[in-house]
Design a binder for these strands. Sequence first.
DNA 1: GTGGTCTAGACCACC
DNA 2: GTGGTCTAGACCACC
Lengths: 133, 133, 133, 133
Amino acid sequence: MWLSIDPRSAKPVYQQVVDGVKEAVAKGLLGHGDRMPSVRELAAEMTINHNTVARAYQELERDHIIEVVRGHGTFIAASRPRPDHEDRVRELSGRIRELLIEAHHLQLTDQDLLNLFRSTAEEWHRERRRVQR
Amino acid sequence: MWLSIDPRSAKPVYQQVVDGVKEAVAKGLLGHGDRMPSVRELAAEMTINHNTVARAYQELERDHIIEVVRGHGTFIAASRPRPDHEDRVRELSGRIRELLIEAHHLQLTDQDLLNLFRSTAEEWHRERRRVQR
Amino acid sequence: MWLSIDPRSAKPVYQQVVDGVKEAVAKGLLGHGDRMPSVRELAAEMTINHNTVARAYQELERDHIIEVVRGHGTFIAASRPRPDHEDRVRELSGRIRELLIEAHHLQLTDQDLLNLFRSTAEEWHRERRRVQR
Amino acid sequence: MWLSIDPRSAKPVYQQVVDGVKEAVAKGLLGHGDRMPSVRELAAEMTINHNTVARAYQELERDHIIEVVRGHGTFIAASRPRPDHEDRVRELSGRIRELLIEAHHLQLTDQDLLNLFRSTAEEWHRERRRVQR
DNA sequence: GTGGTCTAGACCACC
DNA sequence: GTGGTCTAGACCACC
């Protein structure tokens, strides 16, 4: 299964579902046109409440990650440039800013953080390649 | 003032205070030995409750960002290595991983993200230098 | 009930809750996976404010004694090694040092104190065995 | 000087003075008949408030560690068996009990704690011998 | 129903 | 004057 839920995490369960789907898509485990499990199927498989899954799907639809086709089911959407692209890049930049502050308090230099960035990216791509085989 | 509070933000007010102090320290606006406003002063200035400020100060003391001198006031602590340093670096790596996923959905390449990282860091340091003068 | 609160004690109420839970876990009255009373239940039972219990639970969660499952309840966590283990052992050593000084003023020899240590430990384990049955 | 004060400590300053005097006596740095600095002298030397020292001296007098001779000064008292000896031993036992609980959560066995006790006692006596020479 | 946050106002220990 | 604790009561997100 491309999703795992930790009910003890501080991250809300619905957010874990949203992030899990986004991660699976980014890894290529789910791609354009793939059928998603129904809200109730996924809820049963993860042993979580179906309302929680429904909320996650709503969020994913708003983000154009999935598409709901009435009477047919839910599918992974085609990835395409988003109208609010600039806003999102700005938001990403804000999160990088937070990393810089956190790194400062961990007494990491920018170079340390850059190295951590590089090694995390490499690890991430290794993982991607592994799951796709 | 080195702090601003947005009562409509999704981020809890006490967390905004914590993050605001950490940012001011990282920028060099506050440094070792500087006196912090008293709990009640800061509460009045930000028009928030003194309990909210007290909670933020307690969190900052636990994180060794500030030091409380009973009956005298609160001061910025000397920065020093933390015992759970490795845990925190791992957590930082997790947040970088989330950025990589988000970047994928924005159709940014790793190189794009690296460039964003670099420009954000530059901007951050420009800001730091500006406020320190 | 595995907890009792003395409102006249010099020890803060929230700290009494924290220590009471830690003692119950050490005694085996509470173990991994056991459900804790909800914040409001415990507050009602002890006739203290729910905020006070909430503060204690937050402290216990930070110490990895309990785990909060959002919207479901609070459970005793599995015990596991802590990253700041060495700091805590050093702190324990400091407390032993204080006992040695106190013992000196009570004109107890080190051997007396060692004997007191042994008899207290035996009594503690007897109590543990009794409550577990 | 046989006393050092850390204003940043969580321990109240007056308590640090009390404990510091008790430690100096236990180490043999101060002994029966030795003259204590006056409240104002000690306050000046430690750069703390004289009311704080006065409170510490009151506590030390109540504990029969020091004796105030009107018009002459303050002196270290002769150590002698105390009427509430049993109460104090019971209190000591309570503190040992707390150590046992803390040790449990640090996953130390009773034997580990006993070893820590022994090594702390050895270190303490080494320190005593060193300062007495 | 679960815990998390916040305000308002009180009282306390410490310095 | 400083921070720490507690109550009472409200509102919120999550499940």
